[in-house]
Design a protein around this nucleic acid. Structure first.
Lengths: 217, 217, 217, 217
DNA sequence: TATGAATGAGCCTTCATTCAT
DNA sequence: AATGAATGAAGGCTCATTCAT
């Protein structure tokens, strides 16, 4: 007679469960890191948010800092994925630039965690990111795409010549990112709330004008 | 006849010593906070850097967080003091803008601690700054000055009309600040060193072009 | 020509001032120790209450613990002084006992600091008091006086014979002191406020009945 | 046929271990608090006495003060449990009173920690106990029992009438508790050792005489 | 005598991490 | 894979005491 086995833990089942735990921990870590920074984040709180045991965090990621890096890479990848989906290469030059500028503001506004992660990582002089090697590959194609757009615009005489693609991209990032990253101190300093949709729309209009105004031949 | 010396100014002497200790602690705290953030900074390390007893830190400032706020206010005040000294209101419009843009980049590059403080404070949603009330007063006059420059420029037909002073100033801050704040992650991503004087000069040229290009009528 | 000396600090003046400072420190220490105990009391707070410099506390008393002992001795001496002034030896036996019982309750109620000091000192197993040698001398005459009253009462057949004076005095202390010392926990436990004058009067009636009821032949 | 064992009761096992740690901490805390009071007690020492990690103290009790309250409640509950086991309601009136008086002296003598805790808690004006709400419920039944004994005694004409149960119980507590609580200062003052069994027996005889002498009709 | 500044040890509490099951 | 208990090393803060004037 066969002894009835208690539900055999199928490999698939287990790995599915494990993957779910892993994903929950990552989400929780993203939120916690974004709120409190690397030093301020608490491993206990991450585990609690994830509804997981603290030990699992170590089983999956090894350490708080390794978890930080994984979260950081994920954030970069997610942003680049959306940015790539814009397919600016396929648009007319002016529309392409408008889209790129607006996207960078709106994405940042939608993902303040991203901003928080970057700030922290810069505080650490990109120490964790440097050990990644994975992020750099994400940005080469983008610069190529921007160069192409600039060239098309110049040929069509809607853009000035001699624009450095990297400098421009940094400026585009800056005009959107800085606003969102510093919205709290800026709101305090200027006594205006910069978080509303109206304020964001005003900012969008302004920075599109700045970039396109600059690019005019 | 002997001139009797008045009682030596003990109070002043003492407070001079105390003031020196206080100043050393502030300097040390600025460095420590900039390097490690609020949560990452260590009170022991601040005291050690200052060559002071930890207890004095509490005697003078009450808590780590109160010290943070004092440091933050000091950083804002220092920057605004230099910025005010530019006296942009006294310059021709284009020169004024050029100077403001260049100053903001250069100051930020010279004072990466300022950047680090701001990032941290934004992570805390400006909670400490909000309780200050002292910083806001620093920026009203600046906006007035920028408005005046913009108006003069528009009248002289070297600037476009309808430019929002606050938006423009935020953009000026952004173009310089973001570059410096994110120089580590940007260097990693783009595989170029952005810390050199040459890179900084190139950035200066670019952002002046962006702002003045945009302002063209 | 004679150089005019600045006000010569007369010995008398100085010692008067010093004595005043010393007295203020003692008062402050009594209050602080009574409120927070020996371990809980803060030297800074004592100095602040006394309006004196902390250094003076050390100049006058040497250490926190020495100050504690001085305060303790003073408290005992003050109580014994009032108790002696009752002159129970001069009263009829029953009236004498009534007076002694009532006094011990009322004094304790008027001087909760005394209670607090005793509790603390017992916590330390009378370590400080033992090093005093001054307090013991205060109580020998009292026991003698009680013995005399008991003898007179027995002879007059209003008191039972064979009563131990020390046990009785401890009981008299207990019946008053315990009530006051534990009024907070007792109030909590029994849900009644024991601090009012009415409650105190009821207690007084009760304990006089207990002692005199017991002493009945 | 093999009896399949149900899953080993992990939860229970674990909680058993945890409960043991918790109990060791409580014991250690009782000793430490009794010796040094709340302010004087050292969390490190409690953990060391318990053979536990300091962190566990916080995991189980949250704070030093919460631990204090738990210890205090436990001490009250332990005493009341023994007192309840006397079943004075089942005894003849005089025997009941004798037993209650003797028990309170002997329990206090056997548990000087209880005395120390009470003293401290009164120093804090019962602040912790007040937040408990658990202790009060322990004493209502006792007062009822005493009232019943007094009524029986009065009916049997062995006790006087009109005795207040609460006052009497406080007196019973006082006569035993004060002696033990103040044994160190009293020994010092009267130059006799009050800690010996002989001294305790003498005290027991005396206070039984006091209470029963008072209760005589 | 009196003062304000300074000190170093130590306190309560918290943290990232690991063990035992 | 998952859990709850446990750990040791700090971390922020406070204290009694002393120095320099």
């Amino acid at each position: 007679m066969v002894t009835r086995q208690p539900l055999p833990p199928k490999a698939e089942t287990l790995s599915t469960r494990a993957a779910a735990t892993r994903a929950r921990i990552l989400d929780a870590a993203l939120a916690e890191f974004a709120e409190k920074g690397l030093a301020g984040a608490r491993v206990d709180d991450i585990a609690a948010r994830a509804g997981a045991n603290k030990r699992m965090l170590y089983a999956h990621f090894g350490s708080k800092e390794a978890l930080w890096l994984t979260v950081l890479e994920g954030a970069y990848a997610a942003k680049r994925a959306e940015e790539r989906a814009l397919e600016v290469e396929a648009l007319p030059p002016v529309a392409a630039m408008e889209k790129l500028v607006a996207f960078n503001l709106r994405y940042t506004a939608r993902h303040p965690e991203f901003v928080a992660l970057l700030n922290q990582e810069n505080l650490h002089r990109a120490a964790y990111l440097a050990s990644s090697g994975q992020v750099k590959a994400l940005y080469s194609p983008l610069l190529e795409a921007i160069r192409a757009v600039l060239a098309r615009g110049a040929r069509a005489r809607v853009f000035r010549r001699g624009v450095d693609a990297m400098q421009l991209y940094i400026s585009i990032l800056a005009l959107g990112h800085f606003y969102v990253a510093n919205r709290h101190t800026l709101s305090t300093i200027f006594g205006e709330t910069l978080d509303t949709e109206a304020a964001l729309a005003a900012r969008e209009t302004h920075i599109i004008q700045v970039v396109l105004g600059y690019l005019r031949p």
